[in-house]
Design a protein around this nucleic acid. Structure first.
Length: 646
RNA sequence: GCCUUUGUAGCUCAGGGGUAGAGCACUUCCUUGGUAAGGAAGAGGUCACGGGUUCAAUUCCCGUCAAAGGCUCCA
């Protein structure tokens, strides 16, 4: 008998050679039907494999990430089986699970696959799934593996085998399809009840652009048709919230081919929203002891040679612009920090001056490959809510923590409740891409880890994600649809002060090198606005929205009264306008609802006589009549509530 | 930059080798209506741009630009 420890701590006994599936059956038939794989002593394996002896077992179902991944990985095999049936001779690269579904990279030879082929592939997948083929694990020798794929003529698999050691190679077979695979897999194909091919794209073999481009086929599968339907609804919802679409509908921003790809043009409403975000941040920063500075959009090339950016990014930047007479070279600024370093260096600094916190909403320009541009989320010119803190080494941790507080304030004010912080450290092996001394790096990495821990942040550590000049703390936010966005970042930098030879005089009357902290809670305003558009579906927090109220006169007779109300509201800083069109009230309401103005104030005979307005809330309906003071109170209450502590 | 797909009115889209279409938006007129679309008329296009094939190209072919999805990259 073997002893099996379950996640709740219970220990049960089973016969030698029992599998996780036997464990599941002993608990309930229903559970057994839903078990996709099992975690045995921390390792994910097939549920059907015999247990290795006394062990801990947790059964994985669709509700576990690992269960899902196993399900999707097996689905990738099913996709491959379908492709092999439909396109004989197709060669296979890799087919892993991803966040939403899976893909398989394939070499179709001269053939191509397009949207029109998806239905046939899906039908084939469903047909094969219905055969209830078991996923059969088979250990093979390297020689056997090579023989099999040589006969099959699949050079990609052969290359993968080349990187594996004899004795650790396994094949998995379902139906007639055999694949090189580490596993694990779900018990059989019948678990897959719904399948959809999502898209195709090019992908280089092993991510190397010098190598052959394969066709990547994306798919997603579910254990129930209903779940696929729900997923498709979610995608529709995401489409409706797409900031590019809403940006146009809400008159926030536009692009022009003549201005250039990736260079957003802010329309009045969008510019107003941007301005409000800037003011919000300015106010918060002022309270936190920052001072505003302002610097030009270009800077001499030598500035970036000093900073190291020229060497690192010069080739991948907008190229220098030159003066006609003197031939001086200037760069469009890709970041604000070198300019701020020069401000620090503009006069002698005392330890008593520190920390100095220079803030600037600086617009920077970075070359992005044309294929990478994406609405406001990825642009070539953008404005950072940038600031650089120059401090003494003993102040780093405290300053870092204050910045974390500022970031949390921002996230709260915008209703971004779900987030985690990522501590980005150096690659553990390859350190060639980083500049700066080992000692400074270690100090910086420790300061971040400590500050994050003291702030009680939920953090994950990622190696290899640091900037080339220092480690950083990145905030990853989840929006209302559960999608992840990388936002504000805080970076410790011991390197730039060194390169710019920045100094302050300490209490010991000696020169010391300050430490620099880069930080941008929003990251870029453009990207941040893209996030809040999608997060709120265009229904911005009341304090932020371009237009807080629209006044709808019942007929032309009440336009004057409406204008008066608008004027009154403007005097108390409520942003309001009047719909003066000769339309019926129903029409005005419909248009206001669609443009997502939070409050509609209706004025007709009744209201004019009683000196009130009838208030209607967007998406909610009629709130009844109230006087203007009542409405002001309502607006203020809502704003206080959404800003939290503010 | 690379792969796949797309580009027709401000927006959403139909069409198709021979005079360019719809709905919404816009303009004007009528209507003055109480909680999600009142009526009529009008204006609006080098069918992304450049080249080729053709008697004739918005339509077919090639190139460029832009956009969408993906790859690679991201100070």
């Amino acid at each position: 008998m073997i002893k099996v420890t379950l996640p709740d701590g219970a220990v049960r006994e089973y016969a030698e050679g029992s599998s996780a599936m036997d464990v599941a059956r002993s608990i309930s038939e229903g559970l057994a039907r839903n078990v996709l794989a099992a975690k045995v002593n921390g390792e994910v394996r097939e549920a059907g494999r015999p247990l290795p002896g006394d062990c801990s077992v947790s059964l994985l179902t669709w509700n576990d990430t690992e269960g899902k991944n196993t399900f999707w990985h097996s689905s990738a095999h099913l996709l491959a089986e379908a492709l092999e049936a439909l396109y004989p001779g197709v060669k296979f690269g890799i087919g892993p699970p991803i966040e939403n579904g899976f893909y398989y990279d394939v070499d179709l030879g001269d053939r191509t696959i397009g949207d029109g082929d998806f239905a046939a592939i899906e039908a084939k997948m469903k047909e094969l799934a219905g055969r209830k083929s078991a996923f059969v694990r088979q250990e093979v020798s390297k020689a056997e593996a090579i023989r099999y794929f040589t006969t099959k003529g699949d050079e990609y698999k052969l290359e993968l085998i080349d990187g594996l050691n004899d004795g650790e190679i396994t094949f998995y077979q379902q139906g007639d399809f055999v694949d090189l695979c580490r596993g694990p897999h779900i018990p059989d194909t019948s678990f897959i009840k719904a399948a959809k091919v999502m898209s195709v794209a090019g992908a280089y073999w092993r991510g190397d652009e010098k190598r052959k481009q394969l066709t990547r086929i994306y798919g997603i599968t579910f254990p129930k048709q209903k779940e696929l339907d729900e997923y498709l609804v979610l995608l529709e919802e995401a489409k409706k919230r797409d900031h590019r679409k809403l940006g146009r509908e809400l008159d926030l921003f536009t692009f022009s081919e003549r201005v250039g790809a990736g260079l957003p043009l802010w329309l009045p409403k969008g510019a107003a929203l941007r301005e409000r975000l800037i003011n919000f941040m300015k106010e918060a920063q002022e309270k936190a002891g920052y001072v505003q500075v302002a610097t030009p959009h270009i800077g001499g090339k030598s500035l970036y040679e000093t900073s190291g950016h020229w060497e690192k990014y010069g080739k991948d930047s907008f190229q220098p612009i030159s003066t006609p007479q003197e031939g001086e070279l200037f760069m469009l600024k890709p970041m604000n920090c070198p300019h701020h370093c020069e401000i620090f260096a503009s006069r002698p600094r005392s330890y008593k001056d520190l920390p100095l916190r220079f803030a600037e909403f600086g617009t920077v320009y970075r070359y992005e490959q044309s294929g990478e541009l994406h609405g406001l989320a990825r642009v070539r010119g953008f404005t950072q809510d940038d600031a650089h803190l120059f401090c003494r080494p003993d102040q780093v941790q405290e300053e870092f923590m204050k910045v974390i507080d500022l970031v949390l304030l921002v996230l709260r004010a915008l209703g971004l409740e779900q987030f985690e912080a990522q501590v980005s450290l150096r690659d553990q092996v390859d350190r060639s891409k980083y500049i700066g001394s080992e000692e400074n790096w270690q100090k910086a990495e420790q300061a971040i880890i400590d500050a994050a821990a003291q702030s009680g942040l939920k953090t994950v550590v990622e190696y290899g994600e640091a900037a080339f000049y220092g480690p950083k703390l990145d905030f990853m936010v989840r929006d209302a649809l559960g999608r992840r966005w990388q936002l504000g970042t805080i970076q410790v930098d011991y390197n730039l002060p060194e390169r710019f030879e920045l100094e302050y005089v300490g209490s010991d009357n000696q020169r010391h090198r300050p430490v620099m902290i880069h930080r941008a809670p929003f990251g870029s305003l453009e990207r941040f606005i893209a996030l809040i558009i999608e997060h709120t579906a265009g229904r911005f927090p009341l304090w932020l929205t371009p237009e807080q109220a629209i006044i709808l006169p019942i007929s032309d007779k009440y336009i004057d009264a409406a204008q008066q109300v608008a004027g009154n509201l403007k005097d108390s800083d409520i942003r309001a306008s009047v719909d003066e069109r000769s339309e019926k009230i129903g029409r005005k309401i419909r248009d206001a609802e669609l443009s997502k103005v939070p409050f509609m104030l209706i004025i007709g005979e009744k209201e004019e006589e009683t000196n009130t307005v009838s208030v209607r809330e967007q998406g909610k309906g009629d709130l009844g009549a109230m006087d203007l003071d009542g409405f002001r109170r309502l607006v203020n209450e809502r704003i206080q509530a959404s800003l939290g502590t503010h």
